[in-house]
Amino acid sequence: MRPFDYMRAEDLQAATEAKGNGATVIAGGTNLLDLMKLEVMAPERLVDITRLDLHNTERTSGGGLRIGALVTNSDLAANPDVRRNWPVLSRALLAGATGQLRNKATTGGNLLQRTRCYYFYDTAMPCNKREPGSGCHARTGFNRIHAILGASDKCIATHPSDMAVAMRALDAEVEVQGSGGTRRMGLDALYRLPGDTPHIETSLAEGEIITAVILPPPPTAATQVYRKVRDRSSYAFALVSVAAVVAMDGARIREARLAFGGLGPMPWRDGEVERALEGQEPSDALFDCASDILLRDAQGQGSNDFKIPLARRTLKAVLREVTRTEAPA
């Protein structure tokens, strides 16, 4: 770990200023310190924001939920309002990491965690995300945990969060504070696809800090499910995960919001999948059609080819569950 100057921000302005001047923000630290110990990340300055007043979760005037960026994953998962009204978010949080990590990891930090790509983590290996232009060693290497959607020839890393997958399905927005004031954006706008610049992962500007996540009001009469498939029964990253928020209108699907983990460089969502489902009567054929759409551009990299059938199977099972459709005999 490289030496750094440590400063504790007493207020948000000091924090955004420090970040604008090149400091790296530390909150829970569960991923940043992990990476700093390996010198995958080597900031010269750290600004500690843990004592800022961003620890509250409260209803917005419009009936949504404003989650402070420093709310821990544990507190968010255990929040009674979240458990009752946004259960997919609790479920996703509880499917991730461990009790100890969730007690430390924060909402903002969870969104901004880096990929778990083995080659990103090993400074002796080429990695365009860590060292732009050095190459992607994962594409031709061991890539069991890598992306099948949204990757580029420069980077095939996945985003490892469970929480963010549920948030994406819930149409969450992040509130961002910078020197120029506050702005809000959806997760689709927060995250960037790797393209030719996999080292640029978000659209946050230099001095911007995530201050909150805003959930819209709870979906009405919707079934919410988070399903995670992994290599051991606990404490493993998703091979595939599906967050589903689906509402029925009689025998037909009124609204479907589906997000996916383990498949792409960001929590994945595909509007065409949802449009294919909405207004339709659930059936295995329909679910196959939705899976076809989701996976139309899917590309395996060798060791992760299995994610294509696994994603199909998992999506179909989740759709059966939320629409209470029997599997064909």
Binding site: Y119, Y121, T140, R232
Partner: peptide, 24 residues
């Protein structure tokens, strides 16, 4: 998992080398 090109151990930590956890 050994890297197919240089033979190094790719999953050289306890997050990616999966020994059983209590839940298993």
């Amino acid at each position: 998992a050994h890297d197919p090109r240089d033979g190094h151990i790719v999953n050289r930590d306890l997050a990616e080398y999966h020994i059983p956890v209590n839940m298993d």
